[in-house]
Design a protein around this nucleic acid. Structure first.
Lengths: 250, 250
DNA sequence: CATCTGGGTTGATCTACATCAAGGTTGTCG
DNA sequence: CGACAACCTTGATGTAGATCAACCCAGATG
């Protein structure tokens, strides 16, 4: 059980009791000059399912997720949708230097965001190289995640995709550390079957079938529709197709 | 024919006759203090097919592609491979703050890279915020490209994938502007069928079949195995599944 | 309490792409 | 020049996952 435990621990290492993890560009975990951010920040809440901005809409702010989960998606003319970003607490939204959103941003669960108006934020970036550096680091992390995701989309089977998604959520969701005991862990799935299918490049029927199949084989235990227990994290990891020491570089 | 012409022109707007385009972090297009980079840079050449570094290997440099094409790929234990990065001249390789490569880096064609030893480069970054800013911009561009790519991998059909790849290469390859005349353009495919299949998440047989099918329908004209002419760029664009004004944001 | 609605499951069938297999073309090297 | 090695094409067949369709369940709502 050791790897499961350790690989989860490594992710969320600083600011244990602060809702904004250490990678966030947010005043809470900062000190120094960054208190200036305090003056330009404000909070917004969204309900599960609500759209924050549509692709192409103008967006005059950047933001950091405080609680809840948001997604970035692209839609083709005929309605096919692909999720391209999954934003957990501390993740950053928006691109300095661009006035419109390139993606649909949607709240997957009830969500609170810490927003900064774009112009003052960009001014701050110029004055405070520190922020740019953090942003670079975060963007590089996101790029790595996107590339991992590309491997999933391009080459993994449906079963591997589902297993991967479950381990990804397990690793990234800070809340579930509490429920953890010798390799068993449980959490509430923050995504509907449909959202999962958009993440994975599958249909929701296939997602449902594969979840059932993992359940029947005892790799996961479900309680209601959303609550999931993983009795043996390592066993699930073996289903992901990743090499055992997987590129968990963040 | 206008869109084809215009969408190609926008990409490569500065430094028309410099092999390093404006996005590059390279001394050639810089002036000022960046001449310091001159002192820590050196060139390396690779033959088509040669591996630059393997995933996991230590990598003590960052680099910028000068000529040729390099790829980043991930490999699963059982050999399934997915390309996750396609690097054209001016594109950047390597991640500041990381000592090993996360991906296999391969030269797809004969390639020259402009390398900077990692340590001095990182020192420079600290002293010169300008470089960090550029790197951030480039990384954000790459992230956008990766997300476009995710849509392709997750939701497009084989035919749409092939058409998309051809338009992507056409748009990004500076050399072919020369051959352009009222919407017709031609270029040498820099990738083998196998490399294309790794890019697209397909098998090489499927790539071959779809190329044949596009050829039979007159969407492309081939000369030998690699030289491709696109008689009507807009018509090919319609096969990509992208909305007509597609997110060409760079 | 009945009904409606938004998720979720499961079955039957179809199909796009993978897989397996054979053969073609081009270039290189003894 | 012959033969080998990359690379590419095409055909026959198999299958994972899509599609179409029916039904289930829990919570909300009048």
């Amino acid at each position: 059980m050791t790897r499961a435990t350790s690989s989860i621990k490594t992710y969320n290492q600083e600011c244990a009791d602060c809702p904004i993890r250490h990678r966030a560009v947010c005043a809470r975990c900062e000190s120094d000059e960054l208190e200036q951010l305090e003056q330009i920040k404000y909070y917004r809440s969204f309900e599960a399912g609500q759209t924050v901005v549509w692709a192409g809409d103008s967006m005059d702010f950047v933001a950091s997720v405080v609680t809840g989960i948001a997604t970035l998606s692209q839609t083709m003319e005929d309605g096919r949708r692909q999720m391209v970003g999954l934003l957990l607490p501390s993740d950053f939204i928006g691109r300095p230097g661009r006035g419109t959103s390139a993606y649909d941003v949607t709240a997957a669960t009830d969500t609170v965001m810490c927003c900064f108006r774009k112009k003052p934020f960009e001014d701050m970036m110029l004055r405070t190289p520190h922020i740019g550096q953090r942003l670079l680091e975060m963007t590089l992390d996101e790029l790595d995640a996107a590339r991992e995701w590309m491997l999933l989309l391009g080459r993994k089977t449906a079963r591997e995709k589902i297993s991967s998604l479950l381990t990804i959520i397990a690793r990234r969701d800070a809340s579930l550390q509490l429920n953890m005991a010798d390799g068993e862990l449980s959490f509430d799935l923050p995504l509907t079957r449909e959202a999962m299918s958009e993440y994975l490049g599958l249909t929701l029927e296939t997602v449902s079938r594969q979840m059932s199949s993992l359940r029947k084989e005892g790799l996961i235990v479900t309680e209601g529709k959303r609550h999931i227990t993983i009795p043996d994290f390592d066993r699930l990891l073996e289903e992901t197709g990743d090499d055992s020491d997987g590129g968990f570089l963040v």
